[in-house]
């Protein structure tokens, strides 16, 4: 996703609260998500989730059902339509049902919580997602994660680490997870659950068992705080970013968990040096970032990488791609450098 926005168009990046929440709830694989609103809200999101899943080699269709509100439901209230849809969905015996609201049902004041609270047999979880209230895509992600965390009770510590709020729609979601897992393994740590990425409802129960939560990025801090308050789990606020991020990440994780990281840091320094050697041929080449990433963090990280490999960033340089989100870990930097090298040799 590379965008060249006009300054007046920055609101395009905020996104829809409903879509953000769906990027989370549709990753609970045995659950069904009900979108309470007109069918278009579901169709549009279904298409987007399906297309991005295919990009990430996930073939499963997002489990989405619409209450299909019509004008008549808007006039007389949509609670009946929600009630009927929930009965149909619960009859399919899902692990859980997530109910997401839309702009129109929050405008007419449907009591979604009341309708869902009357259901029994299957957990029916409400996620508030009306976009017009000013929330962004990220608000939807955070609301969904906090709502889903409500399904987990107290649990005994198991020594694992949770990955919180992966960007399920980003192209490199699996590669980024693999990089963080690699770093955790260097410290002798393993992943407890990916909250939420391709997760079974039953596994949500162990959310509180982890010794540490790793947030995908700092916009999830409200979720990290909420989990810390509920389960006492400390958190690391972001994935490691750029050429120098991994060592800092290892130190920070080790410090929080009270473990020795000297060996892990040593190995990481070796990999860093090896990476500098592997791409030494790029030194001196002229590059330019077009278009500039919308996020200043992305620009800063790209500049740092160019500097570390002694590339010249000039407006007349060879255009090289810069991802919307900065590369995760040394392995992410290596993938980016491969792309830059291909652009330089094209």
């Amino acid at each position: 996703m590379t965008l060249r926005p006009l300054p007046s168009n920055i609101c395009r990046f905020a996104g829809c609260t409903l879509t953000g929440a769906l990027s989370v709830t549709t990753h609970v694989r045995d659950a069904i998500t009900v979108v309470h609103g007109p069918q278009g809200c579901t169709h549009h999101n279904f298409s987007l989730l399906h297309a991005t899943s295919l990009d990430n080699d996930r073939i499963a269709l997002p489990p989405l059902v619409s209450t299909g509100l019509s004008e008549t439901d808007v006039i007389f209230g949509g609670e009946g339509a929600l009630d009927r849809t929930l009965d149909t969905v619960i009859a399919r015996d899902p692990g859980a049902v997530f109910v997401l609201s839309t702009c129109i049902v929050d405008t007419i004041g449907d009591d979604v919580g009341m309708v869902c609270g009357a259901k029994a047999g299957v957990p029916v979880i409400v996620v508030p997602t009306a976009g017009f209230l000013g929330g962004s895509f990220q608000t939807g992600v955070n609301n969904a994660l906090i709502a889903l965390a409500g399904m987990a009770g107290p649990a005994d510590r198991n020594g694992g680490v949770n990955i919180i709020g992966e960007k399920n729609l980003e192209y490199e979601v699996e590669e980024n997870f693999a990089e963080v897992s690699r770093l955790l393994a260097l410290l002798g740590l393993s992943v407890n659950i990916r909250f939420v990425h391709d997760l079974a409802t039953d596994h949500i129960a162990s959310l509180g068992a982890a010794r540490l939560n790793i947030l995908r990025d700092p916009s999830l801090i409200p979720v990290g705080e909420s989990l810390k308050e509920r389960f006492g789990t400390p958190y690391i606020p972001a994935y490691p970013v750029g050429i120098s991020g991994t060592v800092a990440f290892l130190e920070s994780v080790a410090d929080t968990c009270g473990i020795d990281c000297r060996h892990a840091v040593e190995e990481e320094h070796t990999l860093r040096q090896q990476t500098l050697d592997d791409f030494a041929d790029l030194a001196g080449a002229g590059i330019s970032f077009t278009p500039l990433p919308p996020d200043p963090e992305g620009s800063r990280v790209a500049q740092d990488i160019a500097q570390a490999f002694r590339l010249d960033v000039t407006s007349s340089g060879c255009p090289v791609p810069v991802p919307v989100t900065p590369p995760v870990g040394i392995i992410g930097v290596r993938r980016l450098l491969h792309r830059w090298r291909r652009a330089l040799h094209a």
């Binding site: 004008e71 808007v74 006039i75 007389f76 209230g77 949509g78 007419i108 004041g109 449907d110």
Partner: peptide, 16 residues
């Protein structure tokens, strides 16, 4: 006419 008191959207009922 319109919806039962306390639900739905009476204004949209007028438009319809």
């Amino acid at each position: 006419g319109g919806p039962e008191p306390g639900v739905g959207c009476a204004g949209r009922g007028i438009i319809a």
